[in-house]
Design a protein around this nucleic acid. Structure first.
Lengths: 132, 132
DNA sequence: CAGCGTCATGTTATAAGATAACATCGTTGT
DNA sequence: ACAACGATGTTATCTTATAACATGACGCTG
């Protein structure tokens, strides 16, 4: 899995990305560290440095309300795109959405105030369909 | 200032709220602690507990992307309302917006996926009009 | 009044998240 | 070969947040 993107990744980056890809929910940096100890990880920086690169590549997203990270579910996610996350507080699943009308609305709101929008964070909390 | 709301506040809550109200930007919990040391604050919990209550009352908001807090700029902000924050990365000012079309769009997006929306976090990063 | 519950407070310690600073190693291009 | 660059490893530290436990203030109720 995820071979299409991991080709250019270094060993550590690939390990972190695989850990996130295999997880069925967001992982904290320290959880990733624990998962990868058996692969030689010893320090948080090994995780954070890999995550930094993966975020630049758009392969990983940070969930601000959870202090955790998820592998991008879109094939090749653009960094500058407006993305919203729906986070189920019951089962922990995260759904990633790209909605153009939402993006437009955020631009409109910003524009009204003369605000030059560079990045947006949208995180929705609630219960997913299954957990209702 | 802020007398209209601080009537029901305890001493610590009022101190924290005043500190945030006087600041011209978001403050971290530990910055608040330092500011209030001269008023007898000694430990982080005194700040965090006050903040918890102030958030429940809708008087204070947490900025997830900054790990910091601001006093609400709306007279009596409802807790359940959808609020967006525009954060200027240059001058640090934060503008709080309540936009019904944005709220509707978030509801629509959620609804499509059968997601029951309970709370939303929207934080926009960029440059404000003055910093352009 | 006494006893009880509840909420705010105070204090110490610790958990959880993130970065600084410095050394080493491997690859690439000249 | 060697300089430049990027990735890695390691230790220590900083920032953010909470656990656990004790005390004090207040109102309610018997």
């Amino acid at each position: 899995m995820a071979e299409h993107a991991s080709i250019n990744l270094t060993k550590n980056q690939a390990l972190v990305f695989d850990a996130l890809s295999k997880a069925d929910g967001p992982l904290s940096a320290y959880t990733i560290l624990d998962v990868l100890r058996e692969h030689g990880f010893r320090a948080p920086l090994q995780v954070y440095r890999a995550i930094d690169k993966l975020q630049e590549l758009g392969l990983v997203h940070r969930l601000e309300t959870l202090n955790a990270f998820v592998a991008c579910t879109h094939p090749n996610c653009e960094t500058h795109e407006t993305i919203a996350f729906m986070i189920c507080d019951t089962c922990g699943r995260v759904d990633e959405i790209s909605d153009s009308m939402l993006a437009e609305r955020l631009e409109t709101i910003s524009g009204k105030s003369g605000f030059s929008l560079k990045a947006s964070t949208v995180e929705l909390r609630g219960s997913c369909g299954k957990c209702g």
